[in-house]
Design a protein around this nucleic acid. Structure first.
Lengths: 110, 110
DNA sequence: CCTTTGTATCGTAATATTGCAATGAATAAT
DNA sequence: ATTATTCATTGCAATATTACGATACAAAGG
């Protein structure tokens, strides 16, 4: 118990859930929004921007990287992070398809 | 420690994160998709549809209800669940805005 | 009234997440 | 060479999530 039973679900359902989980933290959303805004692939001044400890930010960055949403490139002692455009486009479509599968025109049924 | 520090973030960031968390489980996605498909507000034959225990499904339903994504109406001993169209539309817009904030036309910066 | 049916809730176990101090590793600056 | 800067990793504590058996509860049917 305590572990998600992924074998019960389709690959699409698991994928969407996993991507949602990657976004399911305000710090990770803040990081993504900062990367979107600056575009210039800012690194650990996310620690300044957001009020969390350096280790915590680093951990969130790793989760976003593991999810494929961002990528980092080493530049001296710094690491520049930026959004992965391909994955972003893919995610956008994934969520769009999910939300558009329901037609809201006729209201609730209960 | 172990608790998300929501005070560091904006209401929008927390809202988006919370909604993402509501979707961040394949069982909850499967439930939503089933409600989308059947429209007819099926209840605990979600237990049959999905392979999880009744208590587990009930718990996921409560989370979706707490998030405002679904609503249930009692009908005898049964409870008919269906999607909350207003919230659904709201969520759709929330995610859409988030994903569209990034312009992928120029590729990655690192 | 008693039984059946459909759900919700409680209690509990296993696992995952969140956060940070401390430490390590690698480059840059002096 | 030594020190400073930047980031990742480790180890740990607190809390949250996931799953299910057992139980409780309410409405229907006998």
């Amino acid at each position: 118990m305590g572990v998600t039973q992924t074998h019960l679900f389709t690959a699409e359902q698991n994928e969407l859930a996993q991507m949602a989980k990657a976004i399911a933290h305000p710090a990770r959303i803040a990081i993504l929004q900062h990367l979107v805004k600056t575009r210039s692939c800012i690194n650990g001044d996310l620690v300044m921007e957001i009020g969390l400890a350096q280790a915590t930010i680093s951990q969130h960055l790793r989760e976003l990287k593991d999810a494929g949403l961002i990528q980092g490139s080493i530049e001296g002692t710094r690491v520049n992070y930026c959004i992965n455009p391909e994955k972003w486009t893919l995610l956008k479509a994934l969520f769009q398809d999910f939300f558009e599968s329901y037609d809201t025109c006729c209201g609730s049924n209960c």
